[in-house]
Design a binder for these strands. Structure first.
Length: 561
RNA sequence: CGGGGAGUGGCGCAGUCUGGUAGCGCACCCGGCUGGGGGCCGGGCGGUCGCAGGUUCAAAUCCUGUCUCCCCGACCA
């Protein structure tokens, strides 16, 4: 029974004063969510219906690839987290029980699920396995933001695959790719599957599912046939015109010009005709000089990958003692390994710092003037090309991710099995996340208009909203009551606005909530024996005869986006 | 963690500079009208001004401390 007169749907005419993101404003206004603290949100009844619908679609697709649903606790002993080395993570909530034992609130469940598998799996015959659950995750985020886009507590579907070997992992991973493709299609989102950084999870491969929208925190690089997180994207740089290289590099006096722009404009060159040097200190203490084109930026994630380990930018005094005055450093004469970004032409004449005060060098040719190692460590920019096609860069919300974990967790937690030869082997693992709340927010972001939310059919809180105009006892009310019952019998979830309110208020609330179709029973159309049907996406209206209206609406419903 | 901003009825805000005992719109309650785009008239309810301390005859307002929330950046296993 979902009559608006006794349904908890507190709508607001105005958005919260501190809201920026469209999904934040609209989901609060529509009465779907309410905040109780920074990054902590309650789902109100209509919002929870959206969440549940998303969850059910994901559940069906996980079951379809052989996933087995279970449930693991949020509160964990600290011990397994210590074993995998993740107890030190800042985002991990830590607490003590009454006996003083160290506990954690789960930010993910690799430790626990792997522990179960380690305890139970003995034989290669027990594998492969896909286990999953929907469970609350707790993360002490440095900065929660944008409503439910980045919260400290949220529900996640996390699944884990357990295989005998890497080949098996590839199969389980591919099954997840197919399941995720299907679920995002069914959810009605615009989405991309992009190459992703494996991050500090120490995995061997990763993808992310990205829903493009203005409020997104990530950036994706897109071209026909290509999609990657900007963190890892690789592309052909736009060419720059270079000066012909002279026989040898020449000094240029550049007093006080410590920036690329200052030097470039002084010499009448484009920034791309310069190179900039970025000194770093790698794990172990060695200094290396990373060189990228003047118009490019070092991508720290790609650099970390290229270095095969962590690094830090060199400090001013280290730069001054090893190279030269900051602002005037360069690769020529540098007594350290040089990593040269792939966008720099091998035979071009570039301008670089001379490692002397107020001096640059022009006509510097890599290879002739300094030795180097080739790397790809710059951030791509819009206009670069992949296979001849220009890329564009869009903001997006990460709504799902896939990680090939390998033996990152099975090793420390000793999740092993005996193979056919009786030898102990480590289990190969993958982990796969999905965020129902972010998917809901992404849908709001992608399809909202001036009037409010426009849900995809699959995740709308109700299939149709039935609006009646007319007083108690009127002919309109009688018909609406009948339609309400019959629509439900026809299998549709109906929200019935039976309030004693004006038409403007009812229409505004209905369009704010964003159910895919709105039926209006009012005097105006009823005189002609019709009711009005408005399709929320596009707000186009039509009328259908009262006779057969339920069937007509049910049929129309099946064709909605 | 760095920078910026904000806490005053349910929501959105004014009042703070210049101290004098709290106001507006919406919402809500009652009565009536209206009935296809947040309509109209009349009458009401509701606030220890985030919290604590201080100054003062008097504090939303001045001072000190503290808590919370938001935005930008850093971070984001």
């Amino acid at each position: 029974m979902t009559r608006l007169t006794n349904y908890f749907l507190p709508t607001e005419r105005e958005p919260p004063a501190d809201a920026e993101a469209v999904s934040h404003k609209l989901m609060v206004r529509a009465g779907l969510i309410r905040q109780i603290g920074s990054g902590l949100w309650s789902w109100l009844p209509a919002g929870w219906r959206v969440h549940q619908r998303i969850v059910q679609i994901v559940r069906e697709e996980m079951n379809a690839i052989g996933g087995q649903e279970m449930l693991m606790p949020v509160l964990h002993p600290a011990e397994p987290w210590r074993r995998t080395g993740r107890y030190e993570i800042d985002e991990l909530f830590k607490l003590n029980d009454r006996r003083g034992a160290d506990m954690v609130l789960a930010m993910t469940h690799e430790e626990i699920v792997t522990g179960h598998v380690a305890a139970a799996v003995r034989s290669y015959r027990d594998l492969p396995l896909i286990l999953y659950h929907f469970q609350i995750k707790e993360r002490d985020e440095p900065r929660p933001r944008a409503g439910i886009l980045r919260t400290r507590e949220f529900i996640m579907k996390d699944s884990y695959s357990f295989d005998r070997d890497q080949e098996g992992l590839e199969v389980s991973y591919q099954r997840h790719v197919e399941a995720y493709d299907r679920m995002f299609d069914r959810l009605g989102l615009e989405w991309y599957r992009v190459e992703a950084d494996v991050g500090m999870m120490g995995g061997i491969g990763a993808h992310e599912y990205m829903a493009p929208c203005a409020a997104g925190e990530n950036e994706v690089a897109l071209a026909p046939g290509y999609a990657a997180n900007v963190e890892v994207a690789s592309a052909q740089a736009q060419p720059v015109s270079l000066e012909p290289a002279p026989a040898a590099a020449e000094d240029v006096h550049t007093p006080g010009m410590t920036t690329i722009d200052a030097v470039a404009s002084s010499l009448g060159l484009s920034p791309g005709a310069l190179v900039k040097a970025f000194p770093v200190v790698v794990d172990g203490g060695e200094m290396k000089l990373v060189v990228v084109r003047g118009d490019h930026r070092v991508n720290e994630i790609k650099l970390r990958t290229a270095l095969g380990g962590d690094f830090r930018p060199a400090q001013t005094d280290e730069i001054a003692s090893r190279l030269g005055p900051p602002g005037f450093i360069g690769p020529v004469g540098a007594q350290m390994p040089i990593l040269l970004d792939a966008a720099i032409e091998p035979d071009g004449g570039y301008v670089t710092g001379a490692n002397r005060p107020d001096m640059h060098l022009r006509g510097v040719v890599p290879g002739r003037d300094f030795q180097f190692e080739r790397v790809d460590v710059r951030s791509v920019v819009a206009g670069d090309t992949v296979a001849g096609a220009e890329i564009r860069i869009e903001p997006a919300i990460e709504v799902g991710n896939l990680f090939k974990l390998g033996t990152r967790y099975s090793d420390p937690l000793r999740a092993t099995y005996l193979d056919q030869a009786g030898a102990e082997q480590l289990i190969w693992m993958g982990s796969y996340g999905f965020g129902p709340a972010r998917s809901a927010a992404a849908a709001v972001e992608q399809y909202a208009d001036e009037q409010g939310i426009s849900w995809p059919r699959s995740m709308a809180p109700f299939d149709v909203e039935l609006v009646v105009l007319g007083k108690d006892g009127s002919e309109e009310r009688t018909l609406a009551e009948r339609l309400y019952a019959e629509l439900q019998q026809a299998g549709l979830d109906v929200l019935y606005d039976d309030r004693d309110a004006g038409p403007g208020e009812k229409f505004a609330d209905a369009e704010l909530l964003g159910c895919p179709a709105r039926l209006t029973v009012g005097r105006r159309t009823l005189a002609a024996g019709e009711i009005e049907v408005q399709i929320r996406r596009g707000r186009e209206s039509r009328t259908v005869p009262v006779d057969g209206a339920v069937e007509a609406v049910a049929e129309l419903w099946r064709e909605l986006p």
